[in-house]
Design a protein around this nucleic acid. Structure first.
Length: 490
RNA sequence: CGGGGCGUGGCGCAGUCCGGUAGCGCAUCUGCUUUGGGAGCAGAGGGUCGUCGGUUCAAAUCCGGCCGCCCCGACCA
């Protein structure tokens, strides 16, 4: 391995799980491949949801909810969609159990369903079956609906947060009168996801669209945001799909236009999932545990009181409570950890593992001097700070942490991004350095498949901002107009 | 489904080769002393060793079947 990738990366999986365990985000459940999201981890998801939900609503979207069960026949209506999802569906075939004479339980043969139900792997089909009835006229459009839900995909191999059998997500499903409007919606959400990733998660992303082979099953175009994890592998963090009229045609969803013609509606769908928790962990964490961006951290500031004697305790806790009150008054989330069963050092280590951005320690010395000790999770820096004007100081620090995390992640990505012109160089860079590799591609599925077979790298996206540049395909030698991003991916 | 590995208190493991009736670390509980970087000491609780069968005076250990899990490949937000 090149020195560019730390030793941590060679054993990334173990390290990653250690971090997760240390922070008590989740455990493996008795149900294979499913996750238990513990309160700490769920608080993080809650914060992400709140921000995203606000962004959706600001852009005119509304929430709704559709059934978890999808009739099997629905799935068959869009050919590409079936191809993509048929192999990973949980199927409900019976409606009740029966206790045998010997005490064993079986699915009651008498309760076999007339038609199997699929546990949704995604909701396009049942939603478009519904939209057919909702949409009659151009006056009914657009439909801008989002759903917060769980979905199930029967994966062969799972990985905590990144690929679980059941996961939580939001899925937006919109219907429009024109192709242009649907594409505009697709791009709007794509931008929204990128903004969320960069401004809230402090995770730089590359915006682009997918090659045909990586496209969502049933989409005409898939826009993606791709992030780089600390081991140099790519993670698809969110996708926004332009579905054309595919689902409208499959589900016969038409509307009457102003010109009194009958047309199929244009569609989009888009989603992000609990995979973002994994993305956040793998982007910022270090060997001491999680590092959370202040804008999403469930607790932004933790206060650890330190004292020996009873009179010290009264003084210290008095100041600590006053500071907590002040900071809360400024809109910060603050936790005062006054547990007496644990010593300060242990608390320090605990909140470092949990990723709390700012820690304040207050002891008799600080009380006497009118200061507190402030420690930053991202840099580990500790400083003595006056109690006077503390809230402003902390707000400034939180902003600096938020920005610092983004800058650090961006710098890491740039250090692990290469540009190559020959297949030999491509293979060498992937092998020795990893990361993102910009290279020319002739647009053929053959080249793409060949590269994947040889190197396990895939085209992560065709970047939107890639400049026009003449070049030749790595393998075929055919002309190419711009570079695409290759990487090994999760 | 192919190739490897593993099932022993809540978690992580040793013991298996060479059978003798289960142990270590962490965690938990009690008490005392501690508290500015993961406390110390003393004591306590908790496991029919994945499962079924076989061999044996005796099985976590040997033999056979089954079940489950993990890692690597094909599938994937």
């Amino acid at each position: 391995m090149a020195d560019a990738i730390t030793s941590r990366a060679t054993d990334y999986s173990q390290w990653y799980l250690d971090v997760v365990k240390a922070a008590q985000l989740a455990d493996h459940s008795p149900v294979r491949g499913c996750m238990i999201v513990k309160p700490n981890g769920y608080a993080l998801w809650d914060n992400m949801k709140t921000v995203l939900d606000g962004m959706f609503k600001q852009t005119g979207h509304v929430n709704a909810y559709f059934p978890i069960f999808i009739p099997q026949s629905f799935l068959a209506k869009e050919a590409d969609h079936v191809d993509g999802f048929a192999k990973e569906c949980a199927v409900v075939t019976h409606s009740r159990l029966k206790v045998n004479d010997d005490g064993t339980l079986i699915a009651d043969p008498a309760s076999k369903l007339d038609e199997n139900l699929i546990v949704r792997p995604t909701s396009e089909t049942i939603i478009w079956d519904t939209y057919r009835n909702w949409i009659q006229s151009w006056r009914d459009l657009p439909v801008l609906v989002n759903q917060w839900a769980n979905v199930v995909r029967w994966e062969m191999r799972t990985r905590l947060f990144l690929r679980t059998m059941e996961f939580l997500w939001q899925e937006g499903h919109t219907a429009h009168a024109t192709k242009e409007e649907a594409i505009e919606e697709t791009r709007l959400i794509h931008d929204l996801y990128a903004t969320f990733a960069e401004e809230y998660m402090a995770m730089p992303v590359i915006k682009g669209f997918k090659s045909e082979s990586e496209r969502f099953a049933g989409a005409e175009d898939t826009y993606t945001i791709e992030a780089m994890m600390q081991d140099g592998k790519a993670l698809q963090a969110g996708t926004s799909h332009f579905l054309g009229q595919n689902f409208a045609k499959a589900f016969d969803c038409t509307f009457q236009t102003k010109d009194n013609t009958l047309e199929h509606v244009w569609a989009t769908s888009w989603g992000v999932s609990t995979r973002l928790i994994g993305a956040l962990i793998m982007t910022h964490s270090d060997d001491r545990g999680l590092v959370l961006p202040p804008k999403l951290a469930p607790t932004q500031v933790v206060i650890v009181p330190i004292y020996r004697k009873e009179h010290e305790k009264a003084e210290v806790l008095g100041v600590a409570e006053r500071i907590q009150h002040e900071l809360r008054g400024q809109g910060l989330t603050v936790k005062l950890d006054a547990r007496e069963s644990y010593r300060p050092g242990r608390k320090f280590a605990q909140y470092e593992a949990e990723g709390t951005p700012v820690r304040l320690a207050i002891g008799p010395r600080d009380v006497k001097n009118g200061v507190v000790e402030m420690a930053r999770r991202d840099t580990g820096e500790k400083a003595s700070v006056p109690q006077e004007g503390l809230a402003e100081h902390i707000e400034t620090t939180l902003d600096a942490i938020q920005q610092g995390l983004f800058d650090k992640a961006l710098q890491f990505r740039e250090q692990h991004t290469s540009s190559v012109d020959t297949y030999d160089a491509f293979k060498r860079v992937l092998d020795e350095k990893g990361g993102f590799v910009y290279a020319h591609w002739d647009g053929s599925a053959e080249t793409e498949a060949q590269i994947k077979a040889d190197t396990k790298a895939t085209i992560r996206c065709i970047p939107l901002d890639a400049p026009e540049e003449d070049g030749v395909d790595l393998i075929s030698g055919k002309p190419s107009k711009r570079r695409v991003v290759f990487a090994k991916a999760y």
